[in-house]
Design a protein around this nucleic acid. Sequence first.
RNA 1: CGCGGGAUAGAGCAGUCUGGUAGCUCGUUUGGCUCAUAACCAAAAGGUCGUUGGUUCAAAUCCAACUCCCGCAACCA
Length: 479
Amino acid sequence: MKRIMSKVYLCTAIPYVNGHPHIGHAMDYLLADTYARYRRGCGDEVRLQVGTDEHGNKVFRKAQDLGLTVEEFARENSDRFRHFVEKLNVQYTDFIRTTDPEHVKRCQEIWQRLEPHIYAAEYDGWYCEGCERFVTQKEYDENGGLCPDHQKPYEKLAEKNYYLRIQDFKDQIRAKIESGEMEILPVFRREEALRLLEDAPDISISRSRKQLSWGVEVPGDPEQVMYVWIDALSNYITVLGYPDEDIAAWWPATAQFIGKDILRFHAITWPAILLGLGLPLPKRLVTHGYVLADGQKMSKSIGNVVDPVAVLDKHGLEAFRYFFLRHIDTFADSDFSWEKFEDAYNNELANDLGNLVQRLATLCRKNQISGRPGFAIELAAEYQELMEKFEFTKAFDYVWKLVHAANRTIDAEKPWELAKKGETERLEEVLGGLVEQLLTIADLLAPFLPKTAEKIQEIFAKEQILPPGKPLFPKEAKK
RNA sequence: CGCGGGAUAGAGCAGUCUGGUAGCUCGUUUGGCUCAUAACCAAAAGGUCGUUGGUUCAAAUCCAACUCCCGCAACCA
């Protein structure tokens, strides 16, 4: 059956550049990249956006602390994320920075188009003179009304802000979530979003320039600067060229990948902006959970933050991708621990798969079995279904069944005995079948572990099969 | 009574919608094999399915109440 090639647009949340890449960022990227590779493998044309969110006071202040210009600091951190994405072998097509002049210009145009839904009102809240900023009620309560940095009580202060009238869109958003026009995955997040929507207030979308200088100026009001929402969220379409270019070929996005913490903004604020612009909503919001460290949320104060670069360095990229795509649940919170990571590497990658490649390649070489250049399969329906539902851990389980089956076949057929007995025909049949099995495994693995899939293909799609010079997944010498 | 998620073998999970002898992976023990990265294959041990009550011939699964963990609640991945 021939599929009609389609265009697929995938978006990842753009991280705020006041910090370094976190393991949670890797989840966005890996999920999106895996799906992107899967769809490319199906013959679709895929565009994958990544980028960085760079405005705001936190970045501004951090730059000052470090004695850098804010531009330098933002660029440095943006580059850090870009390198991280590349280190993860994510095939992105677009990298957007919210400080890109094009983006700034476009998001001002977006603001203007939204003006029928924008109104000015007094914002009043708790303000710290020393910090020169408002704090949330929550922060106020936590600190007992006293700024911890300046030991001064917060004062009640009011200033003009622009607000986006979320109320204009609530009914439409609810209808689109309920009808599945914008599908929110997993289902329990959809329920959560509908609940959040019920009492979603209008949101403040600007600050006075005194409050917030590092940001996009509000068109027609130089005293006001855009607060994060319109600036950051609109990146998903400004990167496509909106409103200068026609984006209908790519928008609505096939899927947007986000962490559960930003569900609210992507399920309410972002749809409101899109509806205000007369644009369709993304087809799916894929909401992943958190990566926990030994059962706890990673946090700087607890000091249990796992550095993704350290994990990458331990056993390499493929092991990293393997663990986070197979053992970190796509939707629920899951645990990372070094022990689990090591176990998965040794037992599954090295023993099950790596060793299988090794033993089969050796058997083939010894018995002069040739590879299968150009061998191609149709992806099994079960696998395709899982991939389409972003059930990546389950898709992996499916692949691993084939890995086990291959190991079982070798043990049951005992090719070495067939060779001894001179049963050449049977031998060729068995090993040939296994070679095809391995190439099938490589195809299924390709979206997850592109380099591993490639290596397997290099070995078994060649006329002459040779065992890899180095094991695919070397284990440390055990004593 | 803010909202949501969870509680199933030593660990991590599936099964719950559509009741019917409790399943997977890792770990443990034993056996087999020797092509292979001391890898692979097979078998076994191990669970009153959070608690209590109800419905039913039958409940991990449906209903009710309760207990305990975790997350979210204006940018903290």
